[in-house]
Computed example of a mutant assay.
Amino acid sequence: MNTLHTPDQPSHPFATLSPDRVLDAVESLGAYSNGRCMALNSYENRVFQVGMEDAPTLIVKFYRPERWKTAQILEEHAFVATLAEAGAPVVAPISYQGQTLHEAEGFRFALYPQRPGQAPELDNPDHLFRLGEMMGRLHHIGGLQAYQHRPVLDVAQWGRPAREAVLTCPWLQGSQRTQYAELSDQLLARIEQIMAPFADQWIRLHGDAHVGNVLCRDDDMVLVDLDDSRMGPAIQDLWMLITGTTMAERREQLSELVEGYEQVCEFPRAQLGLVESLRTLRLIHHSGWIVQRWQDPAFPQAFPWVKAEGFWDQQLKLLSEQSQNLTLSMDRMLQV
């Protein structure tokens, strides 16, 4: 029997991260700001744009306390540096005093160059081709060696903890809790079976490759924010870029992505059968993530509907639909 708890907490460490503390942290490295500090949209971490004296503007990322071990952050930094050195279009952390990870008043933080730009257009064939080529470059290098410290995209690490968080929160009403428990357990067990034969194909990924983590400006396109980078199937970095509302649109998007990807490396066509499993895993993870982060004041402000009964009715409906979709291969659906 799960014990219900409320995720509400009176305070959060990020509440102490004032603009003055942000500027003090940057200047502790010997870099001098011009006093301008603007918070940027970010939930998992806290990210600020800081103006500098006689130097380009910096982006400063403060890591969520207790989420990553230092070795895990440094491993991600090393991967991004390797990608940048190989010519892959990524934004790498800046090294100050020979280090990319710093600490101030209990917070670990990193500095990045500012890269202005807009999200790519997923109805633009040229953008899709370039996205595919970009992911091909990342995966070619990502497959050369494995992470030793960062997690794996699987049910045990990404699915079951999120499910437990949902089941122990107080917001599911009446039969919703029983339905969610049974349905999510069945789905996660099925996903484990579907993904198991592919485990030897896992590589280092971006991990959260949606359009918000790609910046376009003129002819440049760069990847940002590998904070969710982990081991997993290559298709994880591609399926969220297929957003067409009709079968024909999705087929065309996938075709452009594949053509770009295969400029660099072979497209993992067999992994198309994992797309619905990954979609389902993301649905479960996302709702659990919100519950787990509820003590952070940013989350109740951004996701107030999570406490509503109707939200969980919708989640149950989506998961029920996914129970039918798990047996479908995108390869077969799109006939590519």
Rank of each mutant, 00 (worst) to 15 (best):
L4V: 14
P7L: 05
P10I: 02
H12R: 05
P19T: 00
D20M: 11
R21A: 06
L23V: 15
E27K: 03
E27W: 04
L29C: 09
N41R: 10
F48E: 05
G51L: 12
E53A: 13
A55L: 14
P56E: 07
T57C: 12
P65C: 04
R67G: 01
W68Y: 05
W68T: 00
W68M: 01
K69Y: 12
A71C: 12
L83D: 03
A84G: 08
A86G: 08
G87P: 03
A88W: 04
S95D: 08
Y96L: 13
G98L: 06
T100M: 00
F109E: 00
H127C: 01
F129T: 07
F129G: 04
R130T: 08
G136V: 00
Y147C: 00
Q148Y: 08
H149L: 09
P151G: 05
D154N: 07
V155W: 00
A156W: 10
A156P: 08
R163M: 13
A165E: 10
V166L: 12
T168I: 07
P170K: 04
P170C: 06
W171D: 06
G174V: 06
G174I: 06
G174D: 15
G174M: 07
Q176E: 01
T178S: 14
A181M: 11
L187Y: 03
L188G: 02
L188S: 03
A189F: 11
R190V: 05
E192K: 07
E192I: 03
I194R: 10
M195G: 09
V211W: 09
V211T: 15
D218L: 11
D218K: 14
L223Y: 02
L226A: 09
D227F: 02
D228V: 02
S229G: 09
R230C: 13
M231H: 06
M231N: 01
I235C: 08
W239Q: 07
W239C: 07
W239P: 12
T243F: 09
T245F: 10
S255G: 12
L257D: 04
E259S: 14
E259Q: 14
Y261G: 01
V264C: 07
C265A: 15
E266I: 11
A270Q: 14
L272W: 03
L272D: 03
G273R: 04
R279Q: 13
T280V: 07
R282V: 07
L283F: 15
L283P: 09
G288T: 02
W289A: 02
W289E: 03
I290D: 05
Q295R: 13
A298I: 11
Q301F: 12
F303H: 08
V306F: 14
E309M: 11
F311P: 09
F311T: 09
